[in-house]
Design a protein around this nucleic acid. Sequence first.
DNA 1: AAACATACATAAAATTCTTATACATTGGAT
DNA 2: ATCCAATGTATAAGAATTTTATGTATGTTT
Lengths: 111, 111
Amino acid sequence: MKNSQLYKGSLNTIIMKLLEEKGRMYGYEITQKVKEITKGDLHITEGALYPALHKLEAEGLLEVEVERVDNRLRKYYKLTEKGTTETVNRLAELEDFIKNMQSIVNPKLSY
Amino acid sequence: MKNSQLYKGSLNTIIMKLLEEKGRMYGYEITQKVKEITKGDLHITEGALYPALHKLEAEGLLEVEVERVDNRLRKYYKLTEKGTTETVNRLAELEDFIKNMQSIVNPKLSY
DNA sequence: AAACATACATAAAATTCTTATACATTGGAT
DNA sequence: ATCCAATGTATAAGAATTTTATGTATGTTT
């Protein structure tokens, strides 16, 4: 990930949310989608992405389907049942996190 | 910090924002203030806090004033001029970060 | 022919945080 | 009187995540 330190720790949640929405995605597609959504602010690097995907798979949250498209390898990831359940929790945590960070940035609004 | 991984990378920004607002604070006070603001969600541990404060000081973003209160040592931290300037940048980054994360969580709103 | 985009991967190093421990004072409860 | 909780700072070992750099290979554009 590029730029701000703030994105540290949010990669797994981002991956899981995108997969929840799209059904299945491959690694490179995830990087492009995130770049698009954040208008270029967030560039997920391969060095961060692939180990993260492999770990989520090892934890049983994702499963992979390998396909060959245009003679190039693609690994499509999708949420397992366990992963889907866990995504609900992670998104709830994310919403709390965002609220908390907003309370810190803008304490005037907490009346 | 306790619970969610999401807070990783946000500690420095939290510290700087609180100092910008309060003028000066000591470590323990920061932990209590954050606990209060987040209604107990975020517990900043000493093992994370003190190294972070020392590093910000080493970078010239914070300066320290040692005082003895009730025979207990207190180290009050405040932003340097450099730190104040940098805080503006960090808060802008935080706002972008929050917006980006909201775009990811709630893509429907991005029409 | 070179450069760029697509597509995956790993390994060393840096960074940040968790967990555990340490020391010292004050105040309240047993 | 003694113990425990709260206040206050600190460090060190280890874990986890990310950065940076590198590698492989194909397809497309200039």
